[in-house]
Design a protein around this nucleic acid. Sequence first.
DNA 1: ATGGTTTTTACTGCGTC
DNA 2: GACGCGGTAAAAACCAT
Length: 319
Amino acid sequence: MSRPNLQTRDRQRTETEPAERTDRRSCPDCGAEGSVVEDGGETVCRNCDAVVEEDVVDRGPEWRSFSHDEKRQKSRVGAPTTDMLHDRGLSSVIDWRDQDAGGRSLSTRKRQQMQRLRTWDERFRSQDAQDRNLKQALGEIDRMASALGLPETVRETASVIYRRALEAELLPGRSIEGMATGALYAAARQAGVPRTLDEFETVSRVEQKEFARAYRYVARELGLAVEPADPLEYLPRLASQLGLEEAVRQRAAELLADGKAAGVHSGKSPVGLAAASIYAASVLDGRKITQGEIAAVADVSEVTIRNRYRELLKAAGEW
DNA sequence: ATGGTTTTTACTGCGTC
DNA sequence: GACGCGGTAAAAACCAT
């Protein structure tokens, strides 16, 4: 396959401006000078742990295109020679009959020649199809990553995963959208900045069960090592959304650590635990946040918070 | 399909402002 | 009385087999 032709948007951008940004900005939240750093793929403030990246979420129009013409204009990927090989939907097919235009059968030599032509025609055709497929998938990944505020590195991982799936012939029978979403989900988890399936549901064009299935499939077939998400990974984002004070957030992290040591984790939903730790910490600290409030941003039920937070407090010996 | 586990939904009672 | 909280039972969702 002509790898050099499959130059993607992602790659081009990386070469010109590396994703590992080292500029030390000052935090828009707490105002501390030069405290903003990249941490585990998320841009946070070292001082107050605000997730800074949220502010640069791209809410602009998506670049995905819907008509053929539009696609031509917007497209930034794909073989440059497509115009030569391909002809705006007017492509001709090589007839399978071994006859000439007049209906006479061909000589053996001509027949072989035609066979070779068919083979090559088929190759170009399918390569082009894959190309379009990839193009669309990458567009989707980009769009969703923006909507979820996922950093550049995650998008790259996602596109790598997608490409591997494509090469492993995992696509047939599954939708592009579903696969793209699944790949991004996997990438986010691997990068330690997970988003819940529900969150993906809000930005994906396909239903949750579809991309969840695609994700499982890809993870299994490609042997992706995705450990169960650590509740700690959800903390910074929730804390930021709730406007938590540093002390409380810190406390929540400790509770989670104690809980983990006591084995409260296994089988429980990580977001639920993260939410519960925040509630517990806020109670312990005296600055109470209501269960309902936390439940809303974490998207878990209050009951779950109740159950988990009792377990957490027990594990921490605060009960 | 099945069974076990976890989460959610819905409802109830209690205390407080 | 509304609100936050805790508890419970039953339903639903999830997962491995």
